[in-house]
């Protein structure tokens, strides 16, 4: 049976070593640039006509833009649009990382915890830095909701701080876990097919069952790929809303 973990292996393409650290250009890095290239190609080539009445492809790019812009406006308000390039970049990067990963033989960038954690930390550090830069010490009111009795305030502050710290953890683990688990499940069922098909005539017929499972799982994984990109985006917007409006918790 093929190793279901092998698909997550990093393969150096151009080995680079700086000092003692390994900074090789790997299959992961290659896929990151494929994602960036596809995003730029999709959003720039389709809109190069700047048509008043859009073509189908331009309409698709506009719909994607409007979808993310609508999410930002609804959850973070109109002033949240200053973070729109960041949110749109995150959405497109995560979405295409997940979708590119669905191609057989492709590498799933978001199946590595360090990548999802880095993206989550980017969001949280944006929230903290912008929040303090914009609101100063008032931003810390986020952890102490107004109108609470003094007695339970320390408890609430502790809970709020823990909930704030858990945000980047949940944000990164959710994406990482979903992508990793889905791809392992697909590979495991694929392994069943080869294992059963090699076990004689009866096994060959029985292999239809895991094939059916793979088909269903693939459809589910496409759903998960898009859904997780959306979840990552909407949570980013909700967290950015805290940076913009710390009072309205």
């Amino acid at each position: 049976m093929a190793d279901p973990i092998k698909q997550f292996e990093l393969v150096p393409i151009v080995p680079i070593t700086i000092g003692t650290g390994d900074f090789s250009f790997t299959n992961s890095a290659l896929h990151m640039f494929i994602i960036v290239g596809l995003t730029a190609a999709f959003l720039l080539l389709t809109t190069s006509g700047r048509r008043l009445v859009p073509t189908r492809m331009q309409s698709l790019a506009e719909l994607t833009y409007e979808f993310v812009a609508g999410t930002v406006r609804q959850t973070a308000g109109t002033d949240g649009m200053k973070f729109f390039p960041l949110v749109f970049s995150l959405f497109m990067f995560v979405l295409l990382a997940n979708l590119v990963g669905m191609f057989p033989g492709a590498f799933t960038v978001t199946s590595h915890i360090i990548v999802t954690a880095a993206l989550a930390m980017l969001v949280i550090s944006t929230v903290i830095i912008y929040g303090i830069w914009k609101h100063g010490t008032h931003w810390f009111a986020l952890f102490a909701p107004s109108g609470l009795p003094k007695v339970i305030l320390p408890l609430i502050v502790v809970i709020e701080v823990i909930s704030f710290i858990s945000r980047p953890i949940s944000l990164s683990l959710r994406l990482f876990g979903n992508m990793t688990a889905g791809h392992i499940a697909l590979k495991v069922f694929a392994g069943f097919v080869t294992a059963m098909a090699g076990a004689g005539a009866l096994g060959f017929i029985g292999a239809a069952l895991p094939i059916f499972m793979i088909t269903a799982l693939t459809a589910l994984e496409f759903l998960v790929a898009v859904l997780q990109a959306y979840v990552f985006t909407i949570l980013t917007c909700i967290y950015l809303n805290d940076a913009l409006h710390p009072g309205h918790h």
Binding site: S28, I35, V36, F93, I114
Partner: peptide
């Protein structure tokens, strides 16, 4: 592997941004 991934993620995502 984290160093390599972080470096190339920073470059690729920075370019995308």
């Amino acid at each position: 592997t984290y160093g390599s991934q972080l470096l190339w993620l920073a470059i690729a995502f920075g370019l995308l941004y």
